[in-house]
């Protein structure tokens, strides 16, 4: 669906050249919800803006349905933009227009007749559950309602792709979940490909299929969300996840207070059925102290984490850890 090849974008600020993103390669499949996560300034915003050329890439190509959009002229670019919906962190609704007029805006740009616009806007209003707010102005809406209007507006032209630029970052956790639920529903019902950027791991966890981690303008890890939670490859990924997990450093007690080895186990539904910990205790001459445990519900599966203190002789402890490693669960010694 979307293929990004060697994409770079640099800004020149007087004499200094700043590389916002460099040499990005990504493939995003149809019907996928693809998340790009990174800290602020990592370049994720630049990256998503390149997909509809709100930002002009300096190098590289972007193929959308096999067509290289970096070569598009103004006219085809505007045509392309009409087939890509986009939502923003701050909603960006027209403040002087009603909800109805806001959703009608892209349809007016398309030059549709009044009747067609009317029926389409009403359908969309119903879909995002804002029928009663038809004649309200954005200033009279809550953040969640504003984003629903923005989503309806983004869907007006039946796009194939939806881009979300920190679409939930300005919302409280409960509203965030309801917006994510709506996005997931949209993906299922309209067969939409969604690309979203965020700095919140919750968002990735809740609706994404795949995730790319961006740092200093480079993609440092691409993974399915399940794999990322089970077995993160980079420190940044671990940091993002540990923001979700009970954070061992803050929450549990200082690891140095414990004599034994502290390990963090990551496991998925598949190996949750086997009594791994109990077997480990039986097989090795060790003692186990459970410090904490939790489960992260992902889109497709659940990933559990368990933090244990293992006490015993070094040899026995090492063997126990080896045993765990062989059980296809992710083991991290803290």
């Amino acid at each position: 669906m979307i293929k990004i090849k060697n994409l770079s974008k640099s800004f020149s600020n007087g004499s200094t050249k700043i590389e916002a993103i460099s040499n990005i390669n990504l493939q995003i499949n149809k019907d996928e919800i693809f998340g790009i996560i990174g800290l602020s300034g990592a370049g994720k915003s630049t990256l998503i803006r390149c997909l509809n050329r709100l930002e002009e890439p300096t190098e590289g190509n972007i193929f959308i349905e096999e067509k290289d959009i970096t070569t598009f002229d103004k006219k085809s670019l505007n045509q392309l933009r009409k087939s890509i919906g986009m939502i923003f962190q701050h909603f960006n609704l027209l403040s002087q227009k009603t909800v109805y007029k806001n959703i009608a805006f892209p349809l007016e740009l398309e030059g549709l007749s009044k009747d067609k616009i009317n029926s389409r806007v009403n359908t969309l209003l119903e879909y995002v559950e804002l029928k009663d707010k038809k004649y309200a102005y954005p200033s009279q809406l809550s953040g969640g309602q504003k984003q629903r209007v923005a989503i309806a507006r983004a869907l007006a032209n039946n796009p194939k792709i939806l881009l979300s630029d920190e679409g939930t970052s300005a919302l409280d956790p409960k509203t965030t979940r309801s917006i994510l639920k709506l996005l997931n529903k949209i993906r299922k019902e309209f067969g939409l490909t969604i690309v979203l950027i965020t700095h919140q791991m919750e968002v990735i966890k809740d609706i994404c299929d795949k995730v790319a981690i961006i740092e200093d303008g480079k993609i440092i890890e691409i993974n399915t969300v399940e794999e990322l939670f089970k077995n993160p490859k980079t420190q940044t990924a671990m940091d993002f996840i540990s923001g979700l997990k009970s954070n061992i450093k803050n929450e549990i007690i200082n690891p140095f207070d414990f004599k034994g080895t502290i390990v963090r186990l990551g496991y998925s539904e598949d190996n949750a059925k086997e009594p791994i910990v109990s077997n480990m205790i039986k097989n090795f001459n060790i003692q186990v102290n459970i410090l904490s445990g939790n489960i992260n519900k992902l889109m497709s599966t659940s990933i559990g984490h368990l933090i244990l203190e293992i006490q015993g002789e070094d040899g026995e402890v090492n063997d126990a850890i080896k045993y765990l490693n062989n059980k296809s669960i992710n083991v991290e010694v803290i």
Binding site: N52, L54, N78, L80, R81, N92, F105, P106, L109, N157
Partner: peptide, 17 residues
């Protein structure tokens, strides 16, 4: 608000529009 302009551009609006 610059964001409003940006969202209009993203919807494929021309300069005159």
């Amino acid at each position: 608000d610059k964001g409003i302009i940006e969202s209009s551009l993203a919807m494929g609006a021309s300069v005159t529009e």
